[in-house]
Structures are given as structure tokens and as C-alpha cells.
Design a protein around this nucleic acid. Structure first.
Lengths: 149, 149, 149, 149
DNA sequence: GTGGTCTAGACCACT
DNA sequence: GTGGTCTAGACCACT
């Protein structure tokens, strides 16, 4: 589960983490029953305070997306209804499209041309897909290890 | 000078306004000597608290980008050196490119395809350019009025 | 709004505060639209860390019981439906009755007689009612001040 | 020795167990020399992790209330002095009275009337006594079996 | 090992 | 003034 934190950003770290975990759940990178990294591990990996991660997990738990089991870990919950799920997805995409257009608007103001923006898009898509693939294969190998063991 | 505020965003309103004014200065929509809208007018137009705008102007003033003249208004300052200006531009573009790639990363996680993202890009670029043009022409007509008067 | 914290208790402070605020909302001591004390004030009054109160308010907010308005304060929300409200009340009473019987069970184990327990009950009821009344009258006088002013 | 666990409670399970064993010792349900159930049996009976019970016994052992004899079991120790015993009893009762009044306070907030609370008290006392009796008679029959064997 | 609570203190943003 | 986020660090409880 890749999570990328933008340090200088005005978006609070906790919110960045939360949105990416939500996206992972909606996209299927995280499936019901999967365990999230422990609060301490994720905190260390992201070089973030433990409490920050705890807060994120607590909020996702209040949303009903995950469940924190004392002494065991934090786990993705099965989503109650497909309808609800696809509604969440629609909401997330709407929000995404707003952000996207805001960013582009700023790019144009900064004098970037359509051609430059298209190049950046292509590069960013490639980057993101590479990350996703790398992760998926890492997960597969982890799973096969588990099966062997 | 068009400014667009995204209400739900985690990015604070003041920062949204500030970044867009900076971008307008760098892109030339706002030129040295131009006056910014009065604090009260902008606040009303954006449906934002007056103090929020005051603080934005104060910060831009501290940055040396604008000058607040008591009783007159707020004006764009000539940028001290071209070098500095282009350095600022480079910084802003760097930051932009970081944000851009983060947004795209999230879009990919949400399952958007390259094709969808390209369509969104084209639409957003068209939107942004239309806004810029509308503004430029509005400004031209305002200027000719002033000349006539 | 009286809140009583038992320091040595195994029940976490935050949970004690949360349950009492919930009870105040259900009992009508806190009505929709009422403002809660600011996080800092309540923290100081209870001699508790600010973050502890913040967490309480955040959770009540996630429950939909209150709303935190940035820069304004925290306010009791109107409860969506009477049905829901009375269901919450039933839940709270069920939980109460469980706790109550557990406490009594322990009292009996400690060798307290029925008569002693009844005396304690009468005394505790009187205490609690006195507190409620004192608060209600304090509130009335506050309201009449406001009306006069 | 009856022990009742309230699952949802904020009071940790281990503390619930510990307090009840202490109360049993003070009330005489458990007498010096009596054996506690084995760690595994109690854990199974209460559907609790073995380690949880182990830690409870360890703490009671550290308090000098019981003694863990390797390979034999855990036994109630004779209390060093009556004075100490009655002091412990007083402490426990003080703590009990605090908890009791807190619980009643919450009940009043939830709108329960004095009459309702008195009824609940009577019912809870009856329940608790019934449990104590059932246990006592079970213990007597166990003892007579032992004598016979 | 896991999560849960709490503190003290800092700095930020909105009204 | 109000709430919001984050850190560093402590100590506790459950598996």
C-alpha cells in the first residue's frame, strides 16, 4: 500500500493519508479483511508521529471503513452495500475533478501551455501506474511466500 | 482578476487566494502599478471575511509583491529584478508540478483511466483559458473607459 | 453544564466527559443550538489537557451530536429524528442498567446491606438533583442577563 | 466464585476480574487457603485470553492477596493483620461509594426517576444475593464431595 | 507484538 | 477569541 506525503502542502498530513487509504479501499488495492500497517509501522515509514496515524485510523474507523482491534491490528471492513460503495466512489471522483480543475487553472495562470500540461500528465500517469504495479507484484510475492510457509 | 475558491478544500481559503494572486502577478494578468480590488470588495465578491483578505494582502505586502497605501488601495509593485521574478516563477512551477503529480496519483488510485484524465485535462484547460480571456477583455474595456473619462 | 471527572477511574477521562455530554444532550440540559464550552475553557475547568477535550468533541461530532465551527465554537445539533433520539436514549439506559447492576453486585460482595445501599441511593439522588437544579437556575440567570443586555 | 464480565465496558477486563476477586476475598466467599481456579480454567470460563488471567493473578500475588505455587495452583493467603484487612475494606468501600454516586448521577441525567432507580436497586440486590447463595451452596456440595473422597 | 489514552507544548487558520 | 494539526514522549491494556 503506497502512500505519498507531500510535506510542504497546505493539506494536513493526516488528511493526505486518510484520502489515500480511502482511495486504496475504493480501488481494491486494499480489500475487506486486509490489515493496514500497524500505527507504529506506518508512522515510522511515513516519518510521521504515531498519534497522527492513530487519528487517521480512528476517523476511518468512525466512517466504518476499517476496524481497530485492540492488540491485533487494524482491518478493512467489508462495505455494507455496493450502492453505498459506488456512491462513495462518485463523491470521491467529484471531489477529485474539482481539485483537478483547480490545479489546472493554476497551471494556466503560471503560463504553462496545453502541450506542457499534457506532457506532465502523461509522465505522472506513467509514474502512478508504475507504483501501482510495483506494489501489486510485491503483494503477490508476499502472498506466495505465505502460501509456501 | 479571477479568483476561484474551493470551499470544502483542506487548503485554507487565505492560501488559495494568495496563491492565485501570486500566479496572476507572475503570469502578467496583474502588472506592476495595477490596483488590487479593495479589501472589502474582494471579501464581498468571494463571500469571505474581510480579515481574511486583509491578512492575504498583508502577507503579499511583506513578500514585496504588493504595496498597501493607506486610504488609496493596494497596488502591484514592480518586481525588483527579472532574475528574481523568474526564480519565483520556477519555484511556483516546481511546486505546481509536485501538486499536479500528487493529484494524478490519486486519480489513478480512484480508477480513472489515462483517457478520462486526458479528457478532463482538455476540458479544464479550455475552461481556464476562457476565464482568462473573459477577464482580459473586461480589463481592456475598463481601461478604455478610464482613458475616455 | 456540570461534568464530574473521577480521576482514579479505569474509565478513560475522555469517555467520562463524552458520556456526560451525551447524557446532557439526551436529558435536555443541552438543547440543539446551545454552544458547548470552548475546548480550552472546558479543558481548564476540568484540569485536563486541551487535546483530550478536542478528541471528545471530535468524536461527538463524528456521531452527529455536535458540530465544530472553526473560529466560532462547538454547537449541539438538532437530532435528525425523534425515533433515532429515543433509540439512543434506550441504548444509553440499557448500558446504564448494566453498569448499575455491576456496581451493585460489587457492593453486595463488599458486604454492604440492602439498607446501606438504599441510603446511599437516596443520598446520591439528592446530590445529583441538587446539582441539576443549581445548574438550571444558573442558566436561567445567565439567560435573563442576556435578555436584559 | 462468581465473576461477571461486562464486555463493552471501558473498565479493562483484567481490572474487572481483579476487583471481583479482591471483593470475594474481603467478603469471605474466598477464604485463606482456598484455591483459585486454574489460570486456564478461569480464562476458558470467562472466554478471556490466558495471559489476561495470568497477569491478574500476578498482580494479586504482588499485593500479597494470593500465592502462586508452581505446579500446584493459586491460593488465597491469610491476611497478615485484621487491621490491614479492615483498612483495605474501608478503601474498597470508599471507592465503591464514589463509583456508585457517579453512576447515579448519570442515571439522573438520563432522566431516570428516584422510583425507577429504587426498583432497579431492589432487583439488582436480589440478583446479586441469588448469585452469592447459588455459589455458596455449590461450594458446600463441592466441599462435602471432597470430605467423602 | 498490537492499539488506547493522556500530557505539554507548539504553531496555524478562521471569525 | 475560536477550532485544527502535529510532535515527542509516557504509560497502559489486550493478543
Amino acid at each position: 500500500m503506497h502512500i505519498r506525503i507531500e510535506r510542504g502542502s497546505a493539506t494536513p498530513i493526516s488528511r493526505q493519508i486518510m484520502e489515500q487509504i480511502r482511495a486504496h479501499c475504493l480501488s481494491g488495492t486494499l480489500k475487506p479483511g486486509d490489515s493496514l500497517p500497524s500505527v507504529r509501522k506506518l508512522a515510522q515509514r511515513l516519518a510521521v508521529n504515531v498519534n497522527t496515524v492513530v487519528r487517521v485510523y480512528e476517523r476511518l474507523s468512525a466512517e466504518g471503513l476499517v476496524e481497530m482491534r485492540h492488540g491485533e491490528g487494524t482491518f478493512v471492513l467489508p462495505q455494507s452495500a455496493k450502492a453505498e460503495n459506488s456512491q462513495q466512489m462518485a463523491e470521491q471522483r467529484n471531489q477529485f475533478s474539482l481539485e483537478f480543475s483547480t490545479v489546472i487553472h493554476r497551471g494556466i495562470l503560471l503560463g504553462l501551455t496545453a502541450t506542457e500540461l499534457r506532457k506532465m500528465l502523461t509522465a505522472s500517469i506513467a509514474d502512478a501506474k508504475r507504483e501501482l504495479k510495483a506494489e501489486a507484484s510485491a503483494q503477490r510475492s508476499r502472498e506466495s511466500e505465505t502460501r509456501t510457509a
